[in-house]
Design a protein around this nucleic acid. Structure first.
Length: 268
DNA sequence: ATGGTCGACTTTCGA
């Protein structure tokens, strides 16, 4: 069987519900992970998304900021969310899919980290680094069987490779591509042997982005993007990815999010 | 040259 998983930082799900519906109509993913829903659970557009074919919806929202939701055509066996950095922010959902062999889907919204790339003077950057460190310790020690087949997606707010940004040199001191956070992300990847699914399909020496700033006069012409969104799988699923698409066209839709959806299909 | 644009508990903050 194939399972199609999509991740999208929607930047207000209420404002862009029509764009979510459009992506669903065009891609029909089995699982859709949203970040920055920016609403409390009660304000989440549950009815519209159920009508779009998602009977199983986990929402972890808060007022105004952050918030994640995982929509699925496959039932959940279990839904968890971890509280990182004891902040109470809604930045994570883990859903166990009820399917042969099982599969756990982690949906993450990592703190952006503010502007100043010095944790000594910027508490937001310190929070980001602490958050990624906590992710590294997510499965210290033994994993359970349900933690064997895992997918981790989301807006991780870090572009680790040279060609994950439009200018490696010019972004070395820009939060999202600084050596300290890239090193932490690499530790996180190594800690669970995560496989970078996007880079399975696009070589490391080719530019690959999922986010383009709102501030550019012409985002498409300037093409000063960064790869902040990711799809990773554990080694048990390393041989399953058969396709991956960054829906860059969605960045050009009317009243778009600044992030493009990333879609991958796993063949089980 | 140190901006620019979004969305939200908008007159400010987070991204």
């Amino acid at each position: 069987m194939d399972i199609k998983i999509a991740t999208w930082n929607i930047n207000s799900v209420r404002l862009r519900i029509n764009l979510v519906e459009r992506l669903i109509a065009e891609e029909s993913p089995d699982v859709l992970c949203l970040q920055e829903i920016k609403c409390i659970n009660d304000a989440f557009p549950l009815k519209a998304l159920k009508a779009a074919g998602y009977e199983h919806i986990a929402v972890h929202g808060q007022k105004g900021y952050h918030g994640v939701a995982t929509l699925s055509r496959i039932p959940f066996k279990k839904v968890d969310s971890m509280n990182f950095c004891e902040k109470g922010d809604c930045r994570h959902l883990a859903t166990d899919l009820d399917m042969p062999g099982g599969m756990r889907v982690h949906n993450f919204y990592v703190p952006a980290g503010g502007d100043e790339p010095d944790p000594e003077i910027n508490p937001k950057f310190a929070h980001k680094l602490a958050f990624v460190r906590e992710m590294t310790r997510l499965y210290d020690g033994h994993r359970t069987k349900s933690q064997n087949r895992m997918v981790l997606v989301g807006d991780l707010n870090i572009a680790p490779l040279e060609h994950d940004v439009w200018s490696h040199k010019q972004l070395l001191k820009v939060v999202s591509h600084t050596p300290v956070e890239v090193a932490l992300m690499n530790e996180l990847i190594a800690s669970h042997d995560w496989v970078d699914v996007m880079r399975r399909f696009v070589p490391d020496n080719e530019k690959l982005y999922s986010w383009w700033s709102y501030r550019a006069k012409d985002w498409l012409a300037a093409d000063r993007g960064r790869r902040l969104d990711h799809i990773w799988v554990t080694p048990a699923l390393a041989d399953t990815p058969v396709s991956m698409t960054v829906r860059k066209d969605a960045r050009g839709w009317e009243r778009a999010s600044d992030h493009a959806p990333v879609v991958a299909t796993l063949r089980l």
